[in-house]
Nucleic acid binder design. Structure first.
Lengths: 347, 347
DNA sequence: CTAGGTTTCCAAAACGTTTTGCACAATACC
DNA sequence: GGTATTGTGCAAAACGTTTTGGAAACCTAG
C-alpha cells in the first residue's frame, strides 16, 4: 500500500497532457495565436496556422474544458435529475433530454437520486456549483421545496413531468395526466363497468392526483381509492389487501402507473382471478413492459421521450442566451392504448 | 429577436452568483481566509470563521466547481459511455456505476451514443478535454479502435462488459459470457434437444461470440447459426427468415440476448408455433422484460449492476490516486434462470 | 516620401479557486 | 528581557483558457 507499490509499471505514455503553452512553444508562436487558429476567432496567417495545426495533432492537444468553461462562464453541459434510471419511463425521458441536448451542442450529466435525499442534496450541490448550465428536474417524488427554492430564479431549471405546487418561475413540461385519467374512465365506463378500484400513486404528487381526478370525472361509477407509491410492490400489496377482506367488490382496477399495474396483475393471478375475464385492469405510462406482460396491458401512453425533449429544448433556448427562463407550461397529449387487459364485466 | 426582446422581464434575482471575493469583502477578510474556513485546510480564528460562515450562507455562496477543478486538476466526475440507456441492461449497469461513483464522492456524466459515431466522437472529445477524471466504456457495439487508442494509456478508462481485441492496458470487467452460453447448451441438451437454432449478436463483439462458443461446446448437437445485431427486430426477422423456407428444422432456439428472444417469440407466435410446446426458447441477459413476457423466458442472468459497480470501483481506485490503471480483468459469474419457455422437445 | 490602412502576432488581464510562503502579533519559555 | 513558538491572516502564484488593446511590419495610394 505504499504510494510506489507499482513503481516499475511502465504505463504507456502516462505523462501530463499538452497545454496550449506547449503547443505554442513547439510551434514558435504565442498561446494567443494558437487559440485564434483553433477558434477561428481572428485571422491567422495560413502558413502559421498550418504549422500550429500540425503541432496540435502531433501533441494530441485538446483544450481543457474546465479552463475554457471558467473563462466563458458556461460549461455546455446540463444536468438531468431523475429518481430511477432503470425505470424505463425515465430512461425514455432521459433519451429525449439527451437527444435535444446533443442536438444543441450540450452534454448531459446524469443525476440519479434513487429517491435518496442525501444523493439529491449532493447533486444539487454540484448543480449550484455551476458545473452545469441548467437542469432538467424530473422529480418522481415530491421534491424538497427548500432545496428547489435555492435554485429557482437563481438558476435555469425546467421541471419535467411533475409540477410543484407554488413554484411559478419555471418551465414546466408535462403530459396530460388528467386527460389520460379521463380516457381510462371513459373506456371502462363504456365497457360497462360501474364499480372500480383505483390504485393511486403518492397523493402529494400532482401527476398522481391529476390522473385520479380525470378518472373520477369520466367514470361516473363508484370508485374506491387505495394509495400506493408508484412502485410495483405497492400494486401487489394493495390488491392483496383488497382481497384479504373477502372477494373483490369491483370489476375493474385502474392502477396509477404500469409498474403498479404489473404488481396488481401478479397479485390477481395468484388469487386465481384472471384478467380480463374476472377483472379488467388498466395502467398508465405505457412502459415497454406493458405490452410484454400477459395479457398485454391497456394503458395510457405517455410521451416520455417528448416530455424530456421539449423540456430540454425549452430550457436550452434560454440557457444559450444566458437568460433566466420565464415561467411557461407545456402540456403534451397522451393516448389510450387499448390492449387485452380490459373487457366488459363478466356478469 | 433583438437581444433585449424580453427586457422588462423581472426575473427573480437573476444576478451574478457570489464569488469568494464577494464573501471575503463582505466579511472583511481575504479570499484566502474564506477558503480556509470552508476547507478546514488551515486553522482560522473561531470568531472570524463564524462571521465568514454567516456571510457564506447569507450570500448563498457555493464555490465554483470549474475553478476548483482547474486548480485541483480533477473534476470528481467520471463519464459513462453506453449505446442505449433505454435498454434495461445498460440502465442497470448505469445504476451500478452511479452507485459506486456516488459512494466514492464522484458524479457520473452520461454519454448515450445511440450507436451513433458522431455522437460518440463528440463525447470522446468531452472526455479528452478532461471534463471527467475517468471513463467507464460499455461499448455495446464494436468500439472504433482509433478513437479508443487516443484514450488508452493517456486516460483512465475501464471497459465494462465488452472487451476489445488487442486493447491491453485497461481494466476490464465482464460477465462470464462463455460460461453462460455453456449453461444454456447443457440445459437444452439435458432436456433432450439435438438440433438448435442459434441467433447471435454482431459477430465482431466478443461478448456475442463467447456466448456462441460456450453454447456449442456444451450442446453437442447440431447447431445452425444466424447472425443478428442484438436488437429485438433482428430476432423477429431471423425467425421469420428461418420459417420462410418451410417449417423450423430445430426444436430449440437460443437467442444471443433477451431482446432478440422477445422478437423471436413474437415471430414464433405469429407463425402459430407455441413456446415451449413446439419449440423451446432461451435468451441471455435476464432483463426485466424477460420475466414479464409470456411465457416467462429461460435466460442467463447477467449481473449488469455488478459489472458497472465493479468496473467503476476499480477505475476509481486508481483515479483517486492520480494513477493510470494497470491492465486487469474481472470476470463475474452468471446464472441460468430456468423459466417456462424451455421444455423437452415434442416428438 | 509619407499618411493611412492591413495584416499578423503578442502581452496582459480575466475567469474563481486553492496553495504556499510570509508577516505580524501574542504568548510561552528560560 | 530576549528568544522561540504559536496563532492568525494576507499576498501572490498557479491552474489553462479566451479576449482585447496594441505594436510592429508591411503594403498602398496620393
Amino acid at each position: 500500500m505504499t504510494p510506489q507499490n507499482a513503481a516499475p509499471r511502465r504505463a504507456a505514455g502516462g505523462r501530463q497532457p499538452a497545454s496550449i503553452k506547449d503547443v505554442a512553444a513547439a510551434a514558435g508562436v504565442s498561446p494567443t495565436t494558437v487559440s485564434h487558429v483553433l477558434s477561428g476567432n481572428r485571422p491567422v496567417n495560413e502558413q502559421t496556422a498550418t504549422r500550429v495545426r500540425s503541432v496540435v495533432s502531433r501533441l494530441g492537444y485538446v483544450p481543457a474544458s474546465l479552463a475554457r468553461g471558467l473563462q466563458a462562464g458556461s460549461t455546455s453541459v446540463i444536468g438531468l435529475l431523475i429518481p430511477d434510471i432503470s425505470n424505463t419511463f425515465f430512461a425514455e425521458l432521459a433519451k429525449g433530454v439527451e437527444d435535444a441536448a446533443h442536438h444543441l451542442g450540450y452534454g448531459v450529466i446524469l443525476c440519479n437520486t434513487e429517491f435518496d435525499s442525501d444523493r439529491e442534496d449532493r447533486y444539487l450541490g454540484l448543480i449550484r456549483s455551476r458545473f452545469v448550465d441548467g437542469v432538467v428536474y424530473a422529480a418522481g417524488s415530491p421534491p424538497s421545496r427548500q432545496r428547489l427554492d435555492a435554485l429557482v430564479g437563481q438558476f435555469p431549471i425546467a421541471l419535467a413531468d411533475e409540477e410543484v405546487e407554488g413554484l411559478e418561475a419555471t418551465l414546466i413540461t408535462t403530459a396530460d395526466h388528467e386527460g389520460g385519467g379521463r380516457l381510462v374512465g371513459e373506456h371502462l365506463r363504456t365497457l360497462g363497468h360501474r364499480r372500480a378500484l383505483m390504485l393511486t400513486g403518492p397523493s402529494d404528487l400532482r401527476s398522481s392526483s391529476a390522473r385520479s381526478t380525470g378518472f373520477m370525472q369520466a367514470f361516473e361509477g363508484e370508485v374506491v381509492e387505495r394509495v400506493g407509491d408508484f412502485k410495483e410492490e405497492s400494486g401487489y400489496r394493495l390488491i392483496t389487501e383488497a382481497l384479504a377482506t373477502g372477494r373483490l367488490e369491483q370489476t375493474a382496477v385502474f392502477a396509477g402507473n404500469d409498474l403498479m399495474a404489473i404488481g396488481a396483475l401478479a397479485a390477481l393471478r395468484e388469487a386465481g382471478l384472471s384478467v380480463p375475464q374476472d377483472v379488467s385492469l388498466a395502467g398508465f405510462d405505457d412502459i415497454r413492459a406493458a405490452s410484454l406482460v400477459f395479457p398485454p396491458l391497456t394503458t395510457v401512453h405517455q410521451p416520455a421521450y417528448d416530455v424530456g425533449h421539449t423540456a430540454t429544448a425549452q430550457l436550452l433556448k434560454y440557457v444559450a442566451r444566458h437568460q433566466v427562463p420565464p415561467s411557461s407550461r407545456h402540456t403534451l397529449p397522451v393516448e389510450l392504448k387499448v390492449r387485452e387487459s380490459t373487457a366488459p364485466p363478466a356478469s
